[in-house]
């Protein structure tokens, strides 16, 4: 819709799919996970009594899409399908290990969030397919997630680097960790080596530095009006440490 209003696309036909219940529902799955309809707005998600307690990082990322006013309509589904490498909710969803359900003419399929974007403005959805929902896995005790982005302003801006971290701590030791990284490559990335660097550690400086280094190594950014290659790479490392610290604090608070 945004692209249409700004004259970038001229669709011949527009179908409103927001009236399909599954698109706009938030349900807790039997195993303790969440299924979030692709068209659930940021405001609806933040008003859900449980979601933000379990996935505070995903929620804060979704709530960064657009302005307060835009939050009434903006959704994680739209954010993902927009295909922008800088979409805020995408790295957080990747870190969360979210899987999307896609409905097409030949049936349903499930895709990991990190496999949906294909490049700036492009996705791996096939013609006729629509994104139905996100499924977030059950959360073991001692888990926490967080999302941080670097923007020159404090609001109403687009990420120069965005990073989502989700981790689980047991007796102070990290037993699971996933890191999603945005705005530093043609698509948002799952940085597996960064998660690996944290797993098994007590999130000490050496482990955090190793994870930061993994994030820096994963960057394939460009110089553009929003930031330089050098700045984005450096920032990815700085934000990994800050985001991991918040996620760890939340994990410890469970």
């Amino acid at each position: 819709m945004v692209q249409m209003r700004s004259g970038l696309v001229r669709p011949g036909l527009i179908v409103d799919i927001k009236k399909i219940g599954e698109m706009t529902e938030i349900t807790e799955t039997a195993d303790g996970g969440f299924r979030v309809g692709a068209a659930v707005s940021g405001m609806e998600l933040s008003e859900h009594p449980r979601f933000g307690k379990v996935w505070p990082g995903v929620l804060e990322a979704v709530n960064l899409i657009g302005s307060k006013q835009v939050q009434g309509r903006a959704s994680a589904g739209g954010n993902l399908c927009n295909g922008s490498p800088a979409g805020d909710s995408v790295p957080a969803m990747i870190a969360a290990g979210a899987v999307v359900t896609v409905q097409g003419p030949s049936g349903r399929r499930e895709i990991k969030v990190e496999d949906v974007p294909a490049g700036p403005g492009r996705t791996n959805l096939k013609s006729g397919e629509i994104l139905v929902s996100f499924t977030l896995p059950p959360r073991p005790a001692g888990s926490g997630d967080a999302y941080l982005r670097m923007i020159p302003r404090t609001e109403m801006d687009i990420a120069v680097v965005g990073i989502g971290v989700s981790l689980t701590l047991k007796d102070g030791v990290c037993t699971a960790a996933r890191v999603g990284l945005g705005a530093v490559a043609p698509t948002a990335l799952l940085v597996e080596p960064a998660g690996q660097a944290l797993i098994g550690s007590r999130l000490d400086d050496a482990a955090l530095e190793a994870a930061a280094a993994a994030c820096r190594a994963a960057c394939r950014p460009i110089d553009d009006k929003r930031g330089t290659v050098a700045y984005r790479i450096k920032t990815a490392g700085v934000l990994l440490k800050r985001t991991a610290a918040i996620a760890a604090k939340r994990a410890g608070g469970h």
Binding site: P152, R153, T154, M156, I158, K225
Partner: peptide, 16 residues
């Protein structure tokens, strides 16, 4: 001009 809009032409917003 590569930033002909308020997204990339960064005037301060209230929270700044």
């Amino acid at each position: 001009v590569d930033n002909p809009g308020f997204l990339d032409y960064r005037m301060p917003v209230c929270s700044d």
